[in-house]
Design a protein around this nucleic acid. Structure first.
Lengths: 129, 129
DNA sequence: CTACAACCTGGAGTTAACTCTAAGTCAAGG
DNA sequence: CCTTGACTTAGAGTTAACTCCAGGTTGTAG
């Protein structure tokens, strides 16, 4: 699979894919004899995971750390598990904050829509937002 | 309430609070005669909301836009509602991605922990991560 | 064999969101 | 009054994560 095809498949730029490889967010991608990237299933799996975890706000540094541990072999399985658990906690925390924001948004939207219907804006709590 | 007290209450730096005010993420904060910030309930409500929405990944630009609309008066209620609804959709999308990442993490953690117990790492799908 | 598009690299530039610095002002204790 | 510490501003600096660019290479179509 060419870089272009991977770009289209995951809606990501070629620059970002090369950047991920360059800094180690994903391991070195398979190349053709001429040196052109030719993504295999395994390369694509790394790309997919990188995008997934980045989308969840996991920092690039953490993904690099994971790849390093992975490449260091089975002796790092403990460390990898810990890293993943830490990431899990961080993402859970973040998601909690998203839920709080959604509640707040729903409350505000509800009030504005009520104001729309009745033509009157009421402030229960002395301030907006 | 002094800036320091607000910092402590929300675990945020004074620099960030001043920055939010400077760029318009929150409206101008109440001041003492001497020009020192003295946060009132209303100011604090804006701060709290700003932090909440920033924590949910809402960009500073969007918060500034909302404050501008708010300050422009009741004629912008439609626009405000639309902005909030857009924010809601964006946050819902993001949260979906967090859930996908969590699933992936749980799967990986589960496999690593199994490997821990049995001493054997098995790859169902031909690749890790 | 020649276009020509798609690819390559190394390195510089951009963007969002802070974060820090310098130089000065305010306010409470002695 | 004087010190001392918290506060003020304007503006520069930092960081993460891309994003772009220049100059060169690869590979396919005619």
């Amino acid at each position: 699979m060419t870089i272009k095809e991977v770009c289209e498949k995951y809606d990501i730029t070629a620059d970002t894919l090369r950047y991920y490889e360059r800094v180690g967010v994903i391991p070195a991608v398979t190349r053709t004899a001429g040196g052109i990237r030719d993504y295999q299933d395994e390369d694509i799996a790394w790309v997919e995971n990188a995008i997934c975890f980045r989308d969840a706000g996991m920092p690039v540094e953490m993904l690099i750390e994971y790849v390093k541990l992975f490449q260091a072999g089975d002796s790092t399985i403990d460390a990898r598990t810990n890293l993943l658990k830490e990431a899990r906690e961080t993402i859970l925390e973040a998601r909690k904050k998203y839920d709080i924001a959604l509640e707040k948004l729903d409350y505000k939207i509800g009030r504005y829509e009520l104001a729309q219907k009745t033509g009157v804006l009421t402030w229960d709590d002395g301030e907006d937002k």
